[in-house]
């Protein structure tokens, strides 16, 4: 099974590298997992020691729980997540007809809450939103990232690539300065990874909790002394579109553990 996914991943990566030059090519692509110490890798690899699984467990409970004025649970419409949500996260962000823009998985969960459950949206980085997002994404664990081919997404993805390559902040660095041009080298005590969003929401030892890709992106912006985009900002979703295209073929790891 694993070999099969590997093969699918390789084919997808080859197709991708023919289509667009997206930073790091096929065989050189590495998950951040590969840059960690064996101890941190072991923490992620075993579900009984991976603290991110606490959020997946909470997400499983929330999935079954009726919410809002409609008094309906996620499971009320979507049934068994292990069937209906399998592979969904590999294709996100997706185009949202209602807003005419791409929407990430956390955004979709909140829009579902509003429209179907008639409930208040969950706040960014709340345990409940992270838990539901982690639970849904976890259903795709082991599957290769395969962004949807949707022409309507192209301009947003292009904007994401432009943002990725734009120098910002007092340190005048772009995402690409570190993660395309200098990955594998050390910055202080840490190895710079290639910045593939394979495991979000993930448990970060530095945070001592689970956080979203948006939290990590804002973290990087603060790191280069730039004004970070707000949670939910369209620019962060555009960046995610580019990052997912760039990570095409790598396997979903949610919930990952990172230092």
């Amino acid at each position: 099974m694993r070999a099969l996914w590997g093969l699918v991943g390789i084919i997808a990566a080859v197709v991708c590298s023919m289509a667009i030059a997206a930073g790091i090519e096929g065989s050189a692509k590495r998950s951040g997992f590969d840059f960690m110490t064996p101890e941190t890798q072991a923490l992620q690899a075993d579900d009984m020691s991976n603290p991110g699984m606490l959020w997946v467990l909470q997400g499983e409970q929330l999935w079954q729980q009726s919410e809002g004025r409609a008094d309906v649970a996620c499971a009320g419409c979507h049934g068994d997540a292990s069937q209906t949500m399998r592979g969904v996260a590999t294709r996100y962000p997706a185009f949202d007809e209602a807003t005419g823009r791409p929407i990430d998985l956390a955004g979709r969960i909140n829009s579902c809450r509003g429209e179907r459950q008639q409930a208040e949206p969950l706040t960014p980085e709340s345990d409940a939103l992270l838990a539901l997002t982690a639970y849904v994404t976890h259903q795709s664990r082991g599957m290769p990232i395969t962004p949807a081919i949707d022409a309507r997404l192209a301009p947003f993805r292009d904007n994401g690539r432009r943002l990725f390559q734009s120098r910002i902040g007092q340190l005048d660095l772009s995402c690409a300065s570190c993660h395309d041009d200098n990955w594998g080298k050390r910055l202080g005590g840490s190895v710079m990874p290639q910045a593939h969003p394979t495991g979000y929401p993930l448990y970060r030892l530095e945070w001592q909790t689970v956080g979203s890709l948006q939290r990590r992106l804002r973290n990087c912006m603060i790191g280069v002394r730039a004004e970070p985009f707000a949670f939910g900002a369209p620019e962060l979703v555009d960046l995610e579109l580019h990052l997912m295209e760039r990570a095409r073929g790598l396997r979903v790891e949610t919930p990952a553990v990172r230092p």
């Binding site: 202080g188 005590g189 840490s190 973290n219 603060i222 790191g223 230092p259």
Partner: peptide, 9 residues
Amino acid sequence: VTLAACIED
């Protein structure tokens, strides 16, 4: 204990 280069503020 090595310190991370990029930490949140």
